[in-house]
């Protein structure tokens, strides 16, 4: 890539002082560092992957309202986690976390287990039980 081709598109850095380093060649073909304020292509895929999380979150909210899933499903998406990540944070086996995502098994969770989830999501147990969407 040539230095003058380094993309200077609008991105999530635009409101900050942040810029990214990209190696590019100058007129004499010599490599050097150049700064980029963002690249549209990257912004598209980033936005899309965030959109994907929003979709999953909306689905979780619908499932909780229909009594299929537990509030843990919502907070998991809110924190951009998947099941392995959440399981690692709470220190509970994945297959158990999977069960806790269902509405009924969630009702039977002990206060101690609820506390562990609440701590990971940095909320109180009552907020975990009665989430506000």
């Amino acid at each position: 890539m040539k230095k003058e081709e380094v993309p200077q598109d609008e991105s999530c850095f635009s409101d900050t002082e942040m810029k990214e380093v990209i190696y590019a060649v100058d007129k004499d073909g010599k490599y050097d560092k150049a700064l980029s304020s963002g690249w549209e292509t990257k912004t598209i895929v980033l936005d899309k992957s965030l959109e994907h999380i929003e979709e999953r979150k909306a689905q979780a909210i619908a499932n909780i309202k229909n009594g299929i899933q537990s509030p843990i499903a919502y907070f998991m998406e809110e924190h951009r986690m998947d099941i392995p990540t959440l399981a690692s944070y709470v220190g509970i086996w994945q297959w158990r976390v999977k069960r806790h995502l269902k509405a009924k098994p969630f009702q039977r969770l002990s206060a101690k287990t609820l506390q562990r989830y609440a701590e990971v999501f940095e909320i109180s147990v009552s907020e975990l039980k009665h989430p506000k969407f």
């Binding site: 890539m1 990214e20 990209i22 190696y23 690249w39 292509t41 990257k42 895929v45 980033l46 994907h52």
Partner: peptide, 21 residues
């Protein structure tokens, strides 16, 4: 595909950018 591109171009992971380095 989005994942492929994100891994390719995101800060700290690189791909296309790696070729330039």
């Amino acid at each position: 595909l989005g994942q492929l591109v994100r891994m390719q171009e995101e800060i700290g992971t690189g791909g296309g950018g790696f070729r330039f380095i």
